[in-house]
Design a protein around this nucleic acid. Structure first.
Length: 302
DNA sequence: AAATTCCACAACCGCTTTTCT
DNA sequence: GAGAAAAGCGGTTGTGGAATT
């Protein structure tokens, strides 16, 4: 894989940007637009590497970037989405208009993380930090394969405690409403060994459910997730599902493979409506199957 | 008032993924 | 399809200002 030379290797300037450098970069991007960053420094008269220019633009100079303190709603959204997705800063940023992933990451590391620790919660799992060694062992055992389970559960419980319905976004009316009470509980039996990738897939799938994504509406009022994202998410989830031994459910297998083909691009002549129907059917079928699994797991735990 | 510590955040680094040729 | 370039991502570090001693 080719890689951009770093600033150090080619003797370019590093460190904080000066106002003059910012001016040059802004002027260049305003005239030529962002992109082709490798050639930007030479054309803009900057002694920086293209990567540095790109980051400076994306994280600081872009005109629509929202700066300053995070609102309560933004704060809450970050906590909820982090509990669902983990350190997926770019995905979290997609839910917070005009905030950059870097800004959210910094805010998490310097603010929310510490707050969780003060509250006696593990910032990674969102679970109470236990002092008892046996409990700690149990937790280790549980989290070895189920990294995001605790994150999920904590977010869900918090959501329930606050009245089940949470707003995602910064108060904008065209942002999705996140109804966490609609999301099924995650599988919690230790007999399953699920990779983080599959857990993330599950969590994203849960997010699809939580946003009440209107698959029948050609013009959805929801900004996220878009249909292609839904297909990708559920396509990944279909893989995870196969590992979870849902092979006996013919309906699920059929729909799953159909979606998988769409996701892989081997089927290109399907209309949007067809895809929507498949996704919706898959979603409904999954919902029930997953719920059964959770019920069984709950019995095992008791 | 000076020195030290703490904190927020901008920027860098290295790796992966996507796009282009 | 392969290789290179570009873009994206997340972890980490460096820097400067504020707070504390």
């Amino acid at each position: 894989m080719g890689r951009m030379p770093c600033c150090e290797k080619v003797g370019l300037k590093k460190g904080p940007w000066t106002p003059e450098e910012d001016k040059k970069l802004v002027a260049y991007v305003e005239e030529h637009g962002p992109g082709n960053w490798r050639s930007v420094p030479a054309k803009a008269g900057l002694e920086r590497c293209g990567k540095s220019c790109r980051l400076r633009w994306i994280n600081y100079l872009k005109p629509d970037i929202k700066r300053g303190n995070f609102s309560m709603e933004e704060d809450h959204t970050i906590i909820q989405l982090h509990a669902l997705l983990g350190n997926k800063w770019s995905i979290i940023a997609a839910h917070l208009p005009n905030r950059t992933d870097n800004e959210i990451k910094n805010y998490w590391n310097t603010n929310i993380k510490k707050r969780l620790i003060r509250m006696g919660l593990d910032p990674i799992t969102h679970k109470p930090i236990k002092s008892n060694s046996f409990e700690a062992y149990d937790e280790f055992k549980d989290t070895t394969n189920m990294g995001h389970v605790a994150q999920w559960e904590s977010a869900r419980l918090e959501a329930e405690a606050r009245g089940s319905i949470l707003q995602v976004g910064s108060g904008s009316s065209n942002l999705p409403r996140l109804n966490l009470s609609k999301i099924p509980t995650q599988p919690c039996s230790s007999s399953y060994s699920i990779s983080n990738e599959h857990m993330t897939a599950y969590n994203m799938y849960a997010l699809v459910l939580a946003t009440n994504y209107d698959l029948q509406s050609s013009v959805s009022t929801l900004s996220v997730p878009k249909l292609p994202e839904v297909c990708t998410i559920i396509g990944k989830f279909a893989n995870a599902e196969s590992l979870l031994s849902y092979k006996n459910d013919d309906n699920v297998v059929e729909i799953s493979s159909q979606i998988q083909k769409v996701v892989e691009g081997s089927v290109s002549n399907l209309q949007d409506d067809d895809i929507m129907m498949a996704v919706e059917a898959f979603r409904t079928a999954k919902c029930e199957s997953i719920q059964e699994l959770f019920n069984e797991s709950a019995v095992e735990k008791v």
